[in-house]
Amino acid sequence: MIFQFQKQFPQLNAYWDRYLPLQKRLEIPAKTKLLEEGVVSHQAIYVEKGCLRTYFNNNGTETTVQFFFEEEGLSSLDSFINNLPSPYTIETIEPSVVYLLSRKHVLQLMEELTYETDFLMMFMKITARRLTHYSGEFISFIRDTPEERYQRLLKERPHIIQRVSQHYIASYLGVSAVHLSRIKSKLAKGHLHF
């Protein structure tokens, strides 16, 4: 979501001030679906407070793709940009405060910001960083064992371990909750090493 860049670009406050009133602020409980798999995304989401996850249905089992926390933005990007059905669901997993901005307004804002050279360069860097993160996770999912993926999560994103329920973490790692318990038990006993 575009407003995650607000703190990084205070010189663009005129844009933020103009578009902030067009957002819809929602205070919502856990387990609130903001987008359903198979539905076209028409809103970009900014997380002010809480935690969201993206997941898809895999033959009746929910498979978690990613987690999003405070000051992060998200949407089902391909769906949002290309008007296609979303491949996944977006759902809160904590009571959350989110802002929604319609596709029409996001595209209008992006068009205006294309004239700001500094913004485009930073936007490209941030996008590249996010793509690098996702490709790293994809490679890790193919190359690494579930134990190695859990250790990497502990090292690089410990806030997920601290805030997210174990069954969602297990789903994210591609293992059962029982398997995750075994991994944690081995780690606690010192049988797994970084």
Rank of each mutant, 00 (worst) to 15 (best):
F119C: 00
E156G: 03
E70L: 02
E94D: 09
L109T: 11
K186Q: 11
K186L: 13
Q162W: 10
A170I: 06
P146D: 07
R129D: 12
I81D: 00
T61M: 12
E156V: 04
Y172M: 05
L131P: 08
Q166W: 05
P87Y: 00
S79N: 05
E71S: 02
T64D: 00
P87I: 02
D144K: 15
F138C: 13
R149V: 00
V97F: 01
Q66H: 13
Q108L: 12
E72D: 05
S181V: 01
L77P: 00
G174R: 05
I126Y: 08
E148V: 13
E137D: 15
E116C: 04
R163F: 10
I93W: 03
A177T: 09
L77S: 09
L120T: 11
K125E: 08
L77T: 13
Y134R: 13
L77W: 08
S140F: 04
E112S: 08
T114D: 10
P85C: 05
V106I: 15
R143Y: 12
R129G: 11
H133S: 15
I81R: 02
E111N: 12
F119D: 01
G174T: 06
T114K: 10
I161E: 11
M121Y: 11
E70K: 03
L180H: 04
R143K: 15
H133W: 14
P146I: 06
H105L: 10
L109M: 15
Y172H: 05
G73W: 02
I126Q: 02
H159G: 07
Y115W: 12
L101I: 15
N58W: 07
E70G: 02
L131E: 14
G60W: 01
M110F: 12
S181I: 03
R152Q: 15
G136H: 11
S76Q: 06
I126A: 07
V65I: 13
T132S: 14
I161W: 09
L84M: 09
P95M: 04
Y172S: 01
Y99S: 11
N57L: 03
I93H: 01
Q151C: 09
N57E: 05
T127S: 10
Y88P: 05
F69T: 06
E72L: 00
S86N: 02
G60N: 06
P146H: 06
E94I: 11
R157G: 11
K184W: 04
K155S: 15
E91Y: 00
E94Y: 02
S86Q: 03
M124L: 14
L131D: 14
M121K: 07
V164Q: 00
P158M: 06
A128L: 10
A170D: 06
G136V: 14
S79C: 02
S102W: 01
D78F: 12
D78K: 08
R182F: 07
E72A: 05
T117F: 13
S181K: 03
Y99H: 14
F68G: 00
P158R: 03
S75N: 13
L120E: 10
T117V: 14
S181C: 07
R149E: 07
A177Q: 11
I142Q: 14
